[in-house]
Design a protein around this nucleic acid. Sequence first.
DNA 1: GTCTATAGCTTGATAGAC
DNA 2: GTCTATCAAGCTATAGAC
Lengths: 222, 222
Amino acid sequence: MARPKRTTKEKLLDAAEKLFARKGFHATSLREITGEAGVDLALVNYHFGGKKPLFAAILERRGAVLNEERLRRLTAVRRAAAPQAVSPEAVIGAFFDPILDFLDHAGPGWHSYFSLLAWVNNSPEWGRRLMSKTFDATVREFIRALMESLPGAAPEDIFWGYNFLTGALTLSLAETGRLDVLSDGLCRSNDVAALRARLGPFVAAGLRGLAQRGARSGQAQS
Amino acid sequence: MARPKRTTKEKLLDAAEKLFARKGFHATSLREITGEAGVDLALVNYHFGGKKPLFAAILERRGAVLNEERLRRLTAVRRAAAPQAVSPEAVIGAFFDPILDFLDHAGPGWHSYFSLLAWVNNSPEWGRRLMSKTFDATVREFIRALMESLPGAAPEDIFWGYNFLTGALTLSLAETGRLDVLSDGLCRSNDVAALRARLGPFVAAGLRGLAQRGARSGQAQS
DNA sequence: GTCTATAGCTTGATAGAC
DNA sequence: GTCTATCAAGCTATAGAC
């Protein structure tokens, strides 16, 4: 609506993003996608070369934007803290805030995209390789920053901590509605403000707790 | 091998559990399942009535066992602490330890099962309703216990905290192999001992951090 | 670039013999 | 309970007209 002209390629990307996020890859047919997009079935193969390349294009489209924004903010908090090391809270903010901001202020496309990310992150199969391809370089940079921010922590604790961190984020982005049910409506899975207020503090405290645990027990324990 | 006689029903459950965990529901065909199980294709419909009922039976089979063990341990830690309230660490232990123990000492079936749980937990579609049906009653009991263990925390913080907690657990159970790649082999996603040493401390610290945040800011902030 | 038409295959499910 | 044989429906992908 905002954009005067949407190309066929964009229509297909938008429709597929929405449906893949809602039902997963295999449960969504090209007929549903082209129906939703209002274009002909054969055009998927013309523009993307198949169903899988279409999926890859979806992951890449917003992934590149997200990576750029995350790295921009990481650089900013590092500069703001220099010459001291950044705090874990600042690193975590640079990692989470772009997502939360896009959820708040950008269109429903980003919403579907993050839901899709949540699905593919926990999904078996080839989708995870795409995930890795798009995000690993950026993630490695953030893990380095976390290590700098918690110099007392063992590297293993940081890696596992990142795993927990991304798991907590992922389930929140999936918006399964489970939270709504369990809390009898007190909390809503799509309440970005509530998530923003809690995810950072939870993760930061968890990472600091892990770092302390490592320091307390001397060092390695498995 | 250990069991002398495995019924056709069990063979089908075992094979389907393994394949659904590895490839998801829609990407696994009944022909693959019956082939893996070494039984005839038509027997799925005879014994279970279809593909979806088979999936539901898988979720339910070990879910009942897990729920029972979790509640048994929760009762135990509550009794051990009485008349004082249990600590969050003890509640979290009663929630995580059954899974970790099954992973350590029980067969590969549990391994597949947890991997499947991780998939269905973040999955869109109807699978999540099954998840809710099997686990919600037990989960509500644990959430109550968490509230008792952190009396200063706002209920919203506990609900969101449970969401983060289960997200961290879920991604760890999925064993995506991403951790192995990111750490260049230093950590392995299937290292149960490493997970056991870190998941509890991370989550406990996170919950305590959330509870403090709530106390510090007076109370509600979204 | 877009559309029609269809090839070629796989799927979940079932009827009926044993 | 098990197996053979098969059906109807759905799928992705493509060849070729426009």
